[in-house]
Design a binder for these strands. Sequence first.
DNA 1: GCAGAAGTTTGATCTGGATCAATGCGTGCG
DNA 2: CGCACGCATTGATCCAGATCAAACTTCTGC
Lengths: 195, 195
Amino acid sequence: MIICEGEPATSIFNVTQGVVKLVRSSSDGRTQIVGFRVPGEFFATPAFERYTVTAVAVTDVQLCRFSRSRLAGLLREYPDLLARLFEMSSAQLLASEDQVFLLGRRTAREKVVTFLLDFSSRTLLGRPEPQRLVHLPMARVDIADFLGLTIETVSRVLSSLVREGLITVGISRSVRFVDLPALMSIAGGPEPVIR
Amino acid sequence: MIICEGEPATSIFNVTQGVVKLVRSSSDGRTQIVGFRVPGEFFATPAFERYTVTAVAVTDVQLCRFSRSRLAGLLREYPDLLARLFEMSSAQLLASEDQVFLLGRRTAREKVVTFLLDFSSRTLLGRPEPQRLVHLPMARVDIADFLGLTIETVSRVLSSLVREGLITVGISRSVRFVDLPALMSIAGGPEPVIR
DNA sequence: GCAGAAGTTTGATCTGGATCAATGCGTGCG
DNA sequence: CGCACGCATTGATCCAGATCAAACTTCTGC
């Protein structure tokens, strides 16, 4: 655990290696992952006095930590930095709104496929063309907690995708996209009805 | 309709009167409301080239519109304005993450009660103490689209809350909170189990 | 290499909320 | 006034995904 929801916010973090999950949980134990952060992304926005999420390392991670006082100094020194922060935070808002749509209006199958494609494109920034092999560093329970599903449902969806020949799953949580167009069509939602 | 998702983003808006809903929809007609904006709140973040949501007036509205070029000028003139924008956008990210938790991990009843309490406290900024009467300007279908439910489920939950004496619903979409502690306990989630 | 634990898959059954189908009920309009 | 149209409620039934319950597989430490 890197930071904990509700604690006084003293730092902001940039991920340089590994993957971090951002978690909300309620007192009765239900947990929801509100986002993953991969290298190049930051978390723990400096806009609030206290952390609004709990951050937990999914893999071994390397983080770049700025104390808020140091950040304040940097912001005075480099005014453009704030614009950059604003931009990144807006991108996070956009991603969060995508997740709202995903959670509110899509089926389990659509959720899982969308997650696979999104995560693969996010972690392979160096390589431009759609990658066919993605490594999922997180456990099924994390995927389930991100998608608002149970681990059983995630597992069943993945099995059915394998059965239908759309993906193959290898050892150590790797997934290969076999029929990328079909997957993208699932992620994009059912074909629009003519109207 | 005020702005439309995908169109070139030329302005940002501040609500001064009325309520605006921010909508995402897919080609097959499923729609999800990602937020409501009440007086004092802004929408259409200037961080992207194109609008990322569709904004629709829920009631008659009065808006303050800034063209992006004018905003750029203002930002040069008043550097603190960017900090203010960043702060508001961070607050919207926080709200969006709350909605993610709500959609992913809460029951229909919890969703509806949370919505009622949240909306009432947002629209009554002038009055500090918890208000007992809230006016919901939006139709059932908007509440359903915000909470990831159907109108029937929203209606049934409201009816059951009335039957149990927790609220009363008046004419023209007004709701009175009869048993506020009970409602807050539902919104806060089931009592934590001892562990 | 083996034992145990942790994580994953698969199966059977249940259920919360969706869907389908009327029925009510204000509100504006001819 | 009445009637029609858009919303809202209520009822009956269905089903996607949850829950409960085993296996099974993969890692880990010794």
